[in-house]
Write a protein that binds this DNA or RNA. Structure first.
Lengths: 191, 191
DNA sequence: GCTTACAGAATGAATGTTCATTCCGCTGTA
DNA sequence: TACAGCGGAATGAACATTCATTCTGTAAGC
């Protein structure tokens, strides 16, 4: 196995094990096994478990951002962009349940809390389409005049809940139901 | 300290430590310390950590249910009941941030998954005002015709997100903003 | 009223287990 | 032969849980 290939295997295995069993249910030995490498080998690529975890998070964020960006047209009207972005993320999560589960684990952990705090306090410049969309919507009086955080909550709250329910097999989403759900979110957000 | 008093101290300490540091950041020794009892003492009241955790969850659920029930009038129109239930839970969470943080930890853990699975598959008869409310709303054609799980997502998704943001000091909610937020949820759910 | 005996509670040091991380000998390659 | 890269056993720290011991309150015996 070549060097970058091995690194990839480790990342893939970590994603799978952690998504399925949580940070604490996924010992390094288990990840190493799944990746088909020795336990010590992981430490040739990642200084420690924490760094593996945050690095993996960053890679996922990147992937999702890239996936959603394809097909996004910032010139379209607000409502249309909102529906696109909503269905795109939800679609990504449904197509990549492991990614979704991993993100959830991450967000609900001390790692995620720190990360979020940084982001809100602006330590991370985020090239965020969503922020831009909402700010535009409020300015054009198409969207309710709420603080950004509440608009996010009204959108991503249902989105993530629905993705979770689908991935855990509590409901079955088809394209029509997805669209209707995002439209309902829009009803909550629009003026 | 009397016997039930001591049990209470243990439960209170467990709530606080777990809410603040997560299940894995709250060793039994730490909980015992906070409760002012010996480590072994906890085991006189709870067979093991798992049982302490699930028992505490049940107690919290009970408290919240009781708190919200006060002032709920099943005779009122759907919209009014929806707004009441929304503000009531959100208000409870804001007044009891530890309870909220604990519930979140619980839901995002294997404990919570199992619990949820049981609930959905109907193994727990739940005397759920929310379910009843939505079912009534759909029947009266006041509420969009969605599966129950989606209506829950549209309501609790934003609610929990907003509660989290407030408790972590990412936003500040006042009564007016709370009401407007719940109204926005209603916009998402109503026909 | 005072002392002694005893049962049930409480305690916390000791135990065994589960990891993350380290270390050193091995192997395939140049 | 020399060496980079690996593997996986060894190490030590962090815990949950146990259990031999200590404490406390109650009640019988005087």
């Amino acid at each position: 196995m070549s060097k970058p290939e091995k690194r990839d295997e480790i990342v893939r295995a970590a994603l799978e094990m952690i998504a399925e069993h949580g940070f604490h249910g996924a010992p390094m030995a288990m990840i190493a096994d799944k990746a088909g490498v020795g336990a010590g080998t992981i430490y040739r690529y990642f200084e420690n478990k924490d760094l593996l975890i945050t690095e993996l998070y960053r890679e996922l964020e990147e992937r999702i951002y890239a996936a959603v960006l394809v097909g996004y047209d910032p010139e379209k009207p607000i409502r249309e962009r909102f529906l696109y972005l909503g269905t795109a993320v939800l679609g990504y999560f449904i197509a990549n349940p492991l990614d979704f589960r991993y993100l959830e684990q991450f967000h609900n952990s001390p790692y995620g809390m720190a990360y979020r705090r940084d982001r809100i306090s602006g330590k991370r410049e985020d090239r965020d389409m969503y922020r831009e969309l909402f700010e535009g919507g409020v300015a054009q009086q198409v969207v309710k005049d709420f603080p950004l955080a509440i608009l996010f909550a009204l959108t991503f709250g249902p989105l993530l809940a629905v993705a979770r329910d689908h991935i855990l097999n509590f409901i079955v989403l088809d394209d029509e139901l997805i669209l209707r759900t995002i439209e309902a979110c829009w009803d909550g957000v629009k003026r």
